[in-house]
């Protein structure tokens, strides 16, 4: 079941399914954060904003607004 990345907790491994903002998609893609890729939630600042995720070995910081636009499912 798809849910927003912002709703997941630190340590969760999720698969990116959809990004609800075209501009954000291109930005994420250019940093290697691609649909179908496994993301690990590394760390959240207080109130979950911003957060750090990792894709393979790169670390990316995102605001909560951005994370809310990213639809993910939990990885097996």
């Amino acid at each position: 079941m798809k849910s927003s990345l912002a709703d997941h907790k630190v340590g969760d491994r999720v698969i990116l399914k959809e990004v609800l903002d075209a501009q954000l998609t291109i930005q994420l893609y250019s940093m290697g954060c691609v649909i179908g890729e496994e993301l690990l939630i590394e760390r959240k600042a207080p109130f979950g904003d911003p957060m750090i995720i990792s894709v393979e070995d790169s670390f990316i910081s995102l605001r909560k607004d951005d994370a809310q636009k990213m639809q993910v499912i939990l990885s097996e």
């Binding site: 903002d21 501009q23 954000l24 930005q27 994420l28 940093m31 911003p50 750090i52 790169s58 670390f59 990316i60 910081s61 995102l62 605001r63 951005d66």
Partner: peptide
């Protein structure tokens, strides 16, 4: 819209 998508090397 303001994004803060930033790589942390």
């Amino acid at each position: 819209r303001s994004h803060f998508v930033m790589e942390l090397p």
